[in-house]
Nucleic acid binder design. Sequence first.
DNA 1: TTGTATGCGTTATCAA
DNA 2: TTGATAACGCATACAA
Lengths: 340, 340
Amino acid sequence: MQKAKVTISDVARAAGVSSSAVSYALNNKPGVSEATRDKVLQVADKLGWKPNSAAKALSDASTRCVGLVLTYATEVLSVESYTMELIAGLTSELETEGYSLVVRSSRSQESEIAVLKEWIATGAVDGVFLMNVELGDPRIDLLSHHPQMPVVLLCDTTLSGGLTALADDQRSAAHLLVDYCHELGHRSIARVAGPEYMGHTFIRDNAFVEETAELGLQYSCLHTDYSPSAGMRCTKRLLSLANRPTAIVYDNDVMAVAAMKMAADMDIRVPDELSIVSWDDSFLCAMSVPSITALSRDVVGRGRRAARMLLDVIAGKPVESYTDADSELVFRDSSGSIAA
Amino acid sequence: MQKAKVTISDVARAAGVSSSAVSYALNNKPGVSEATRDKVLQVADKLGWKPNSAAKALSDASTRCVGLVLTYATEVLSVESYTMELIAGLTSELETEGYSLVVRSSRSQESEIAVLKEWIATGAVDGVFLMNVELGDPRIDLLSHHPQMPVVLLCDTTLSGGLTALADDQRSAAHLLVDYCHELGHRSIARVAGPEYMGHTFIRDNAFVEETAELGLQYSCLHTDYSPSAGMRCTKRLLSLANRPTAIVYDNDVMAVAAMKMAADMDIRVPDELSIVSWDDSFLCAMSVPSITALSRDVVGRGRRAARMLLDVIAGKPVESYTDADSELVFRDSSGSIAA
DNA sequence: TTGTATGCGTTATCAA
DNA sequence: TTGATAACGCATACAA
């Protein structure tokens, strides 16, 4: 059973040298002889010395932590896999440099802002990720006024207010989805979208309007809070229309699955009478009966890249905003041409 | 735009008092007059002072962080909602005391141990959670040798080696499940379990053997890695037996859903010819067609309680291990009596 | 009630 | 090449 806290002076004493010699030796810096260095390293290893993180942070002004605030309703968190996949990607890349992800949760944007302000003032993290960016998001304003805090946004570059962003190409994705429906022969399509105030919903909305107009398709859109119940409600409303859409795109997998259930309840056959497509792919889509055609993104890889970008910003390297364009449509059983 | 780093001496200078007076005032401690206190608070507020976390941690030997290592295959992480729900519960309770959750990821038990050793040696966190405890888990040994590091295990008390544990009552749950199948008239049941080396799998295994023997049921069990493909493979094997089981219990929701798909492929009707029950409830179970009968636990609440326990241990309060007994069976469409 | 001085464990500067 | 020593920012024991 080793001593709990081994300090640099313990090592110095044991090796019979001064604490600064130890510091040089351990940090691989010049200013110490080979013999001393070897001895110090040996002793430090035997004693199990590791630098105290608080002391190092105080001295360095660097914590080897980056922050992420989860601002979500618990119910959505537990149902969507997106956040967990993102965290998996973030932590796996951070791990390569021994960085930790510091997670806080909040239930409103105001309290998220409070956490961010705390981090800026206390220096508890070396950088932050911002997700779920909204139109005119006050967090962007906050971080723009504190350029010393490295930040990477997970949102479209048109929303990032000049801050470094990792975007994904929602416009191409929208076009891909609309074109696919068009090719299948659908002439009236609908979309059950996320909240109107979310940045990426806004981007998707515009892209959909643009592309459907171009192709002369009838298009309508309903906004939701992403919940299964909202997905069902909107589906019901759309399918009750006299001139109902023959294809519906859902902004997340959860609502698409819920819609499948609703269609079954209403005795509307999928895909013969209705095509269902999900903007997010997941196990849910693969397992649904019938399985759901979905736009698949590499969320874990996205997390990795975001982490890489933030580490680079922290390291002072020049980092450009980047737009992912890796989404692809996974064809499954929920979509097809309309039966004549 | 405020000054990035406001220190206690900035406040002292601006208020025209000494730094110790500021410290006393800000920490609500005696030893300073009301007038001075008010002035200090006012100035501190105006300057936006917050204590530097590294300095505070160094001085206090307390970081206001607790650690969690995610040791998972990425694929499983993205599919199961358990971890995300747990994190939601943990962070929400930690938030009440301004604590943060520090998340690291690892892909093997060895590297998780390395992270834990790092935390013990560097003092980067005030306490840790241990999940997915295995039989003879070396992490328990490690933490037993470092009693200064507060820890809460999420596992059965028989596995926790005397450390503080938040258990859930797997035995009662097993009995509940077996009794339910028995009451429905099933006489041959099977279980598709998690990995054999996992502590809670072991507990479940024993409880199942015990209870099925008691009721004179035929019982067989296959172990898996929790993945959908393993769930399918095992289901296929079980259903191909000459004397196949009429009810199968799955150790997680993902495999239960996968099994539903497999049963459909094999033209075996659920629940007429086969009852499917999941040990974990989730949105997946509710949305499956037919929906899946499942044992439901309050994972978020469990996370909250675990966090509360760890905070108490850190605060030096006496904390007893605790066993949750809140699981309940949610009856859905995947289970019933065998059609005659 | 107040200000001065010291410790926390590192890193970095500066004489020796 | 070395070993004191200051600095990081806060808390606190102690002296004024």
